[in-house]
Amino acid sequence: MQMLTVDEMSISYGDGPVVLRDVSVTVRPGRVLAVTGASGAGKTTLLHAMAGLLRPRDGVVSVDGQPLRDRDHAVEHRIVLIPQDNGLAPILTAAENLQVALVADGVAAPQARRQTATTLDHLGLATQADQLVEELSGGQQQRTAIARGLALRGGVLLADEVTSELDAGNRQRVLDLLHDEARRGAAVVFATHDPEVAAACEAELHLVEGRAEVVRD
């Protein structure tokens, strides 16, 4: 499994001001790292850089010692991002959203259907499998996006505020599944504003106005 390292990374959008400055952190296989901070602190920016969607202004993001070039390179290294906005196709069903992603990842169609059914069931979505995403509630859409990310079984799993619309029971269910991914050997990063969720993770990186403080390592 991969180790993801951020080394003295700074990020800005175009010619704008620096939004992350001199951030360093190592994401280790088998552990869940919580990234915390107020809205606007830079949590999503950090995860997007880890996913190869943003190029650092300074410093480097590397996976197993190789500098991360872009999103395609991240995908090659099995870095899976569950975005905050869920990124689902609204005109497809919950099951179809998973199956399309799995087939694109090289999974044979029959196996993709089996993995889809199993993963949706783990998220309590078995009865919503054939519903269009646009017909699902916000929490159900969020769980569908989580199911898709889990089904892809990445070496690095980046989850961006994926429990914000969930009740306490489903929030705990998702947290348990993320820890299951870590036990499988994945390196998991979980951006969250929930202090109770963060406390259940093995390590925590706290962002304040674009700067990082390691709370637990």
Rank of each mutant, 00 (worst) to 15 (best):
A151Y: 01
V18H: 02
D194P: 11
R183D: 13
L152A: 13
L157Q: 09
A49Q: 04
A74C: 10
D121N: 13
G149N: 06
L88T: 05
A101L: 08
L175H: 09
P110R: 13
A38Q: 12
G138T: 09
A159Y: 13
V32T: 13
H193Y: 07
S164Q: 14
R21K: 15
D70E: 15
P110W: 03
V18C: 08
P56D: 07
L53F: 12
G14A: 02
G40W: 06
D15I: 00
R114N: 01
V188N: 08
Q172V: 12
L178T: 03
V35R: 00
D7I: 07
T45Y: 02
V103I: 15
E213N: 08
L136D: 03
D7E: 15
Q84P: 09
L158I: 10
M50V: 10
A212R: 06
L166A: 09
A74H: 06
D64I: 10
M9L: 15
H206D: 12
E76P: 06
H122T: 06
G138D: 08
R183K: 14
Q66P: 04
M9E: 00
G149H: 10
S10M: 04
D22W: 03
E196S: 12
A41N: 04
G155A: 15
T119C: 11
R183M: 09
Q131V: 02
G65F: 08
A191H: 04
I146W: 04
Q2I: 06
Q66F: 11
G169N: 11
G139E: 06
T44L: 01
D176G: 09
G210V: 00
T163C: 10
A108V: 13
G30A: 12
A74L: 03
P83N: 12
L47H: 05
V162G: 02
L54S: 00
Q84K: 12
D58K: 10
T144H: 04
V197M: 03
L207Y: 09
G87D: 07
A182L: 02
A95R: 14
L132C: 03
V61N: 06
E202I: 09
S62D: 07
L4E: 02
V188T: 05
L54W: 00
Q172H: 14
S137I: 10
L54F: 00
R171S: 14
L207R: 10
A41S: 15
T119Y: 01
T36H: 02
E204K: 05
Q131T: 11
L33K: 00
P56V: 03
L4W: 04
V156P: 05
T93N: 09
A112Y: 01
T118V: 12
P67W: 09
L54I: 11
L68Y: 04
L132W: 14
G40P: 03
V214S: 14
R153V: 02
R143Q: 12
L205S: 05
L125R: 08
T144Q: 11
L157M: 12
R71M: 14
V6N: 02
N97P: 11
Q131K: 15
L132K: 11
A74Q: 03
D121W: 00
G210N: 03
E181N: 07
A151T: 09
E134G: 01
L33T: 06
P56T: 10
D70A: 14
G42S: 04
H122N: 11
Q115I: 11
M3Y: 08
A108W: 07
L207Q: 05
L158Y: 12
E96A: 15
